[in-house]
Amino acid sequence: MAPGTGPVHEALAALPLVDHHCHGAVTADLSPEAFASLLTEGAAWPGVSPWDTPAGLAVRRHCAPLLDLPRHAPPEAYLDRRTALGHAEAGRRFLTAAGAEVFCVDTGYAPHPLTSPAELARAAGAAAFEVVRLEQLAEAVAARGVEPGEYAAVFRSAAEDAVRRPDVVAVKSVAAYRTGFALDPRRPADAEVTEAAARWLTAGGRLTDPVLVRHLLWTAVELGLPLQLHTGFGDADLRLHHADPALLTDWLRLTSGTVPVLLLHCWPYHRQAAYLSAVFEQVYLDVGLALHHTGPARCRAVLEEALEITPFRKLLYSSDAYGLAEFHHLGALCFRGALAGLLQDRVDADELTLSDALRIAAWTGRDNARRLYGPPVSEPASDPSGRPTRKV
């Protein structure tokens, strides 16, 4: 059988995906410098172009043909063609090529103007739902003004209001960025929260107080929706060794039997995340972000390591695409090819039946997310206002 062919490849190529964690796409044409900056989680340094990375090479190889360019088109030709088409048309091509039927969109990080979930859905011909970032909500509460003794109740009320919206399917925390996960796992006492709120409200700035981050995580559990947690790989604002999900072990013991906890991205701690998913009922994971940053040449290795011990009902697909619609497409392309390749090889080696492989492919690409976030639908659903209903 030729590489990249077989019934598992065919099934995954045709499977409508649920991208359970991503961001919007840019809503303006980009300068060469701005485009290059979005190719990387780092920065463009003198003499080091973000195009000369696995992600940059993957864009030239796998995205250029969608802009009617030859494979491996040089960056200058790529950007000229993208600008000639315009950001809206280029975005539409990449988003539809991703083949996702649902996008779950984190709206809490937007240093660039981005599509809303509804705009992303229209461009993709799909449905989209919102993931509420809780740190942003807490900071909005502080910015409006609140007494330290009232902070906990006001934040809880704001969070409850946010998750009541019919298009919201999950909440997210970036505690990995703000404090790391080496936190006291216990729910903080009311007096601790008031004292910490007084310090923060006086000092201002981002939410980085460990007590208030603990309070935020416990509030998330009480909201009852799936909780997404950034872990592992991220930008330079992160201390990577503090983002190891294994540091959450004691907190996961205390929150057992509550809400699903979805460990996002995970690399290079995807094996630790896999362990947690194997021993805690509520833990799930993905390897989004690592997929397009390792590119088709190496994403299979990451996915295969994540699947060494992960129960097959515990792995989900995400792209974590931000800004460049190319990454919505590349995330899906890398995921389909990597998962199909490793499953087809196991079928060929008689380690899996074909029916087992097809079931695992559907679970991972779509059905695990549907089970966690809401009942399945075959068509994008909207209420009379045009917003999607709360079904994934």
Rank of each mutant, 00 (worst) to 15 (best):
P3L: 06
G4R: 09
E10V: 11
L12T: 09
L17T: 00
H21A: 07
A25R: 01
V26D: 01
A34R: 10
P46T: 08
P54E: 11
A55F: 13
A58R: 03
R61F: 04
A64C: 03
A73W: 01
P74I: 02
R92Y: 05
R93A: 03
V102M: 15
V105A: 03
V105T: 02
G108E: 08
P113F: 12
L114P: 00
A121G: 07
A124C: 00
A128R: 02
A128V: 08
V131R: 03
E135M: 07
A142Y: 07
A143K: 11
R144K: 09
P148F: 12
Y151H: 15
V154H: 14
D161W: 07
V163Q: 05
A170C: 11
G180L: 03
F181C: 06
A182R: 13
A191N: 13
E195A: 14
A196K: 04
L207H: 02
V211S: 02
P226A: 06
G234N: 00
L238S: 02
L240C: 07
D244H: 12
A246L: 12
L248T: 06
W251Q: 04
L252Y: 01
P268Q: 05
A273T: 10
S277G: 15
L285W: 06
L291G: 06
T294E: 01
G295A: 02
G295P: 05
A297F: 13
A297Q: 14
R298T: 03
L307N: 03
L307S: 01
E308M: 15
F312D: 08
R313I: 12
K314P: 05
S319G: 15
A321P: 08
A332S: 15
D348H: 02
R359F: 14
R366D: 00
N368F: 12
A369P: 11
A369Q: 09
R371W: 12
G374I: 05
P376K: 08
V377M: 09
G386N: 11
P388F: 06
P388W: 11
V392S: 07
